[in-house]
Measured scan of single mutants.
Amino acid sequence: DEFHFHWNGRDIRVRGDSEELRRLIEAIKRGELSEEEIERAIEILER
């Protein structure tokens, strides 16, 4: 699976399928994380 979302003017695409990944992306979409937490998560996910 590939998750695709927009954040902070960026087009983010992440491959993978796990419950943890889904929860993280939902939290990002709901605005539950700080900008710094989101940046760090995206860096890890894009590897």
Rank of each mutant, 00 (worst) to 15 (best):
D1C: 05
D1T: 04
D1N: 09
D1Q: 05
E2F: 04
E2W: 04
E2S: 04
E2Y: 05
E2K: 02
E2Q: 02
F3T: 02
F3I: 05
F3D: 05
F3L: 07
F3S: 01
F3W: 15
H4W: 05
H4G: 03
H4V: 08
H4N: 08
F5I: 02
F5H: 00
F5V: 00
F5G: 00
F5W: 04
H6M: 02
H6C: 04
H6Y: 02
H6A: 01
H6E: 06
W7I: 08
W7A: 04
W7L: 08
W7P: 00
W7K: 01
W7G: 01
W7T: 03
N8T: 00
N8L: 05
N8E: 08
G9D: 13
G9K: 02
G9R: 00
G9W: 00
R10D: 03
R10I: 07
R10C: 03
R10Q: 08
R10V: 08
R10Y: 00
R10P: 00
R10H: 05
R10G: 01
I12L: 03
I12S: 00
I12G: 00
I12C: 02
I12W: 04
I12H: 03
I12P: 00
R13E: 09
R13D: 06
R13Q: 10
R13S: 12
R13N: 13
V14E: 00
V14R: 00
V14G: 05
V14C: 01
R15L: 11
R15D: 13
R15F: 08
R15N: 14
G16V: 15
G16W: 03
G16Q: 07
G16A: 11
D17C: 03
D17K: 06
D17A: 10
D17Y: 05
D17S: 12
S18H: 09
S18T: 15
S18C: 05
S18D: 09
S18I: 08
S18Y: 07
S18V: 09
S18L: 07
E19W: 04
E19S: 10
E19Y: 07
E20M: 09
E20G: 09
E20L: 08
E20Y: 06
L21N: 15
L21A: 11
L21Y: 06
L21I: 15
L21C: 03
L21W: 05
L21P: 04
L21Q: 14
R22I: 15
R22K: 12
R22C: 04
R22W: 09
R23E: 09
R23T: 12
R23K: 11
R23Y: 11
R23V: 11
R23F: 14
L24T: 05
L24F: 13
L24G: 00
L24W: 09
I25W: 06
I25H: 04
I25D: 06
E26R: 10
E26S: 11
E26T: 11
E26Q: 10
A27T: 14
A27H: 09
A27D: 10
A27P: 01
I28R: 01
I28M: 06
I28H: 02
I28L: 07
I28E: 01
I28Q: 02
K29T: 11
K29M: 14
K29I: 07
R30W: 08
R30E: 08
G31K: 14
G31H: 15
G31P: 02
G31S: 04
G31M: 07
G31L: 06
E32Y: 11
E32P: 02
E32C: 06
E32N: 09
L33D: 03
L33M: 11
L33C: 04
L33Y: 08
L33S: 04
L33E: 02
L33I: 12
S34F: 08
S34A: 11
S34W: 04
S34T: 14
S34C: 07
E35L: 09
E35V: 14
E35Q: 13
E35M: 12
E36L: 15
E36Y: 12
E36G: 10
E36V: 14
E36C: 06
E36F: 13
E37Y: 07
E37A: 15
E37L: 10
E37D: 14
E37Q: 15
E37V: 07
I38N: 02
I38Y: 03
E39Y: 12
E39Q: 07
E39G: 13
E39N: 14
E39W: 10
R40V: 09
R40F: 09
R40I: 09
R40C: 01
A41F: 12
I42A: 03
I42H: 02
I42G: 01
I42R: 01
I42Q: 01
I42N: 01
E43M: 05
E43G: 12
E43P: 09
E43C: 08
E43Q: 14
I44P: 04
I44T: 15
I44G: 13
I44W: 15
I44A: 14
I44E: 12
I44F: 15
L45K: 01
L45P: 01
L45Q: 03
L45Y: 07
E46K: 04
E46Q: 10
E46M: 12
R47V: 13
R47D: 15
R47Q: 12
R47C: 06
R47F: 03
